[in-house]
Structure formats: C-alpha cells, structure tokens
Amino acid sequence: MNDDELRALPKAEVHVHLEGCFEVDTLVSLASNAGEALPRSPERLFEFTSFDGFLEFLSWSCGLVRSFDDASQAAYAYAERASAGGAIAADVIVNPTHWGSWRGDLTGLVSAFDDGFGAAEADGLATVGLCLSVMRQQSGAEAAELVDWMIEARHPRIVALSIDGNEKLSGRTGRRFASAFERAGAAGLRRTVHAGESSGPDGVIDALELLGADRIDHGVRSVESPEVVEALVERGTTLGVCPSSNLVLGLYPDMASHPIEQLRSAGVAVTVNTDDPAFVGTDLVREYRRCIEEFGWTDDTVREVAAASLAGCFQLERTASR
C-alpha cells in the first residue's frame, strides 16, 4: 500500500493532543501578537530535556492562545492536519489546565473550539470530538468540578473524559479519580485514560478497573503482563498507540523494539496515532508507514488497524447515534 492509498484509506485518529499540534511558525506568530518572548530560538523551540519541561512548554504555547479566533483557528488547523492524513474523524484531547488565558472560562474555550471544528466539517474536513482531560497532578475535587461542568453543559462537541500527565511522577492515581470517572460514565460520557506508558501494566489495570476506561491512550506496556493483555482482549478495549512518540520520549530505543505488532498479534485492538505530531515531527500516514516497513504489515493488516480506529472512535459513535 503506497502513501496515496494509505491517505485514502478511511481511518480515525483517537489519540492526539490539540496542545501538541502547534507548528513553530504558528507559535512564533502567536508569541509576537501576544508580546511574549520565545523561550529559545525557533530552531530549538521543540527541544526538551525532560517530560515535565515538555508539559511546561505546552502550557506556555497554549497560553499564547488568547482570543476566540485564535482558539477557533487552532481547532480548524487540526482538522486540516487530520484530513491530510486521511482521517475522516478524530477524538482530540484538550487539557484545560494548559490553556491559562481561558482559566475560569471553559465555556468560552469549548465554544471557540466548536466553532473551528464546525467550520472544518462544513468545509468537508474530518469530524472531531473533544475529550476534556484531567491532569494527573490535580485533586479529586478538581476532577469532580470538571465532570460537573461537562454534565451540566452537555455540549455536543464533547465525547469523553480523559486523564493525562506524568504517570511516573504521580504514581498510581486511579483511586483519587475513580468517583469522577464513575459519574462521567453514568452520565453517558466515554472515558479514555493515559496508562501503560511511563506506568507499567499496573497503570492499565487501574484504568480498566478503577476508572472504567473505554479506551487506553498508549497502553503499550501492557505487553509486559500476559494477564493484562488477556484482559484487554476479553474486554475489546482499544489502545491509542503512538509509535513515534514512544520512541522520541525514549520508551523504546527503536521501532524493532516497539510492541505494537506483538499486541496486535495477541488480539488487542491497536490503532495508530500521532500524539503530539508537531513536536514529534510526524503525521498519520508516516506512522502507518513506519509500522508497515518495520513489521511487514500487509494491506489486510493495515485495513484491520484502520477499521479498529473507526470502531474505537467516540466521535463516530456519537454522530451515528444522532
């Protein structure tokens, strides 16, 4: 399957952060408009020495988005990116803690994103749902406050509650957020959880058993436990795998060491995604291509993975039920 055929193959992206989609030129322009100095030269802007430094950079970059139009344009630009990779739909993660200029105005931020995504759909681009995310370092009360807002707002653009952040630093936080996730699920929201990346298989078990995860973001370290792999297969839980991101962050030294094919062969519903594509320097077609070249995926295998992404996409599920 060549790149044009890959691009034309219907697929969804189910693990991508809007915060990680700002290109250097866009950030330079936003910083200039905001009167903010760059933390380093444009050529080195995406150089990070730690995961925490990366998260701090996300807050700096998103803090440059200060107007309705800025936020709307960021949403539209993602839909363009997704469509360029052949995605017909996407679930995009947004963590409100990064968007400092909108603190206290989540309604305004979501409205701006909805405006951009709606305009993109009207132009024939990918349909996009929002997954609002709790940061792992937050308290249970803060997570409950976000869920309260989501339930009250019932915004049609919002498809799921998410949780992300530094698993290794935070430790096992499942019990802290279990109540908030239970309430979200009872209200009809889907739940997606970052686990099995910097945490091991225990993080995936917590996501499944304590947070009721409908989907796992990353989940690759499940491969370290046959019991966890079996649980994923039995439940039919989709993994939002991001191969290049795992390599860039040093989780695996090379594609040959990456377990996506081992998980797929075991019967886990794996999907291919970009995570933070601007910072990683990738796109959806490139991620599929890396797997094809490293693992010898046939056209049928590629179609199988693409079909899993469509089946695991909350936005497509939401639109189908309307």
Results as ranks from 00 to 15, higher is better:
residue 189 L to I: 13
residue 25 D to W: 03
residue 125 L to R: 01
residue 67 S to C: 02
residue 40 R to Q: 03
residue 118 G to Y: 01
residue 97 T to Y: 08
residue 172 R to F: 05
residue 30 L to A: 08
residue 308 A to H: 14
residue 105 D to S: 11
residue 254 D to E: 10
residue 1 M to P: 15
residue 127 T to D: 08
residue 109 L to G: 00
residue 38 L to P: 06
residue 153 A to F: 02
residue 180 A to G: 00
residue 82 A to I: 06
residue 106 L to D: 07
residue 40 R to P: 05
residue 140 G to R: 02
residue 142 E to N: 08
residue 130 L to V: 04
residue 154 R to I: 11
residue 85 G to I: 02
residue 253 P to W: 14
residue 272 V to A: 14
residue 83 S to G: 12
residue 149 W to L: 06
residue 300 D to G: 13
residue 247 L to N: 07
residue 263 L to Y: 03
residue 2 N to K: 01
residue 314 F to I: 01
residue 300 D to A: 15
residue 127 T to C: 10
residue 26 T to L: 08
residue 28 V to Y: 05
residue 304 E to Y: 05
residue 89 A to C: 10
residue 6 L to W: 08
residue 58 L to Y: 01
residue 13 E to Y: 07
residue 315 Q to W: 04
residue 76 Y to A: 07
residue 243 P to V: 14
residue 87 A to M: 11
residue 259 P to V: 12
residue 218 H to M: 07
residue 167 E to Q: 13
residue 253 P to A: 14
residue 32 S to L: 11
residue 93 I to G: 00
residue 119 A to V: 14
residue 75 A to R: 04
residue 136 R to T: 09
residue 212 G to C: 15
residue 102 W to Y: 03
residue 255 M to F: 12
residue 281 G to S: 13
residue 116 G to I: 09
residue 19 E to C: 00
residue 28 V to Q: 08
residue 146 L to T: 06
residue 121 E to S: 15
residue 84 A to F: 13
residue 93 I to E: 00
residue 147 V to Y: 11
residue 161 L to H: 05
residue 4 D to F: 11
residue 8 A to R: 00
residue 200 G to P: 12
residue 290 R to W: 14
residue 102 W to C: 04
residue 68 F to A: 02
residue 122 A to N: 01
residue 296 G to A: 07
residue 313 C to H: 01
residue 61 S to N: 04
residue 56 E to C: 10
residue 109 L to E: 12
residue 152 E to C: 08
residue 9 L to Y: 01
residue 277 P to Q: 05
residue 189 L to G: 05
residue 310 L to H: 07
residue 318 R to N: 11
residue 30 L to S: 05
residue 27 L to W: 06
residue 144 A to M: 12
residue 74 A to M: 09
residue 25 D to T: 15
residue 100 G to F: 01
residue 289 R to E: 04
residue 231 A to Y: 00
residue 317 E to Y: 02
residue 180 A to S: 09
residue 70 D to S: 08
residue 250 G to E: 09
residue 125 L to T: 06
residue 216 I to G: 02
residue 29 S to L: 09
residue 122 A to W: 10
residue 59 S to W: 02
residue 243 P to H: 11
residue 188 G to Y: 10
residue 248 V to E: 07
residue 200 G to F: 12
residue 242 C to A: 14
residue 44 R to K: 15
residue 59 S to L: 09
residue 137 Q to S: 11
residue 312 G to R: 01
residue 275 D to P: 12
residue 133 S to A: 15
residue 37 A to L: 04
residue 80 E to G: 06
residue 303 R to P: 15
residue 310 L to R: 06
residue 316 L to P: 04
residue 33 N to R: 15
residue 178 A to E: 02
residue 207 A to K: 07
residue 313 C to S: 15
residue 238 T to H: 04
residue 135 M to T: 06
residue 177 F to I: 00
residue 42 P to R: 14
residue 89 A to N: 02
residue 304 E to H: 03
residue 263 L to W: 13
residue 97 T to F: 04
residue 295 F to S: 07
residue 126 A to Q: 07
residue 63 G to M: 15
residue 81 R to D: 13
residue 67 S to H: 01
residue 180 A to L: 06
residue 213 A to L: 02
residue 129 G to V: 00
residue 240 G to N: 03
residue 70 D to T: 14
residue 154 R to N: 15
residue 149 W to T: 12
residue 8 A to H: 03
residue 131 C to F: 00
residue 111 S to R: 13
residue 184 A to Q: 11
residue 240 G to T: 11
residue 69 D to F: 01
residue 67 S to M: 11
residue 268 V to D: 08
residue 166 N to V: 04
residue 109 L to N: 05
residue 213 A to K: 00
residue 202 D to G: 05
residue 203 G to N: 08
residue 17 H to D: 13
residue 184 A to N: 12
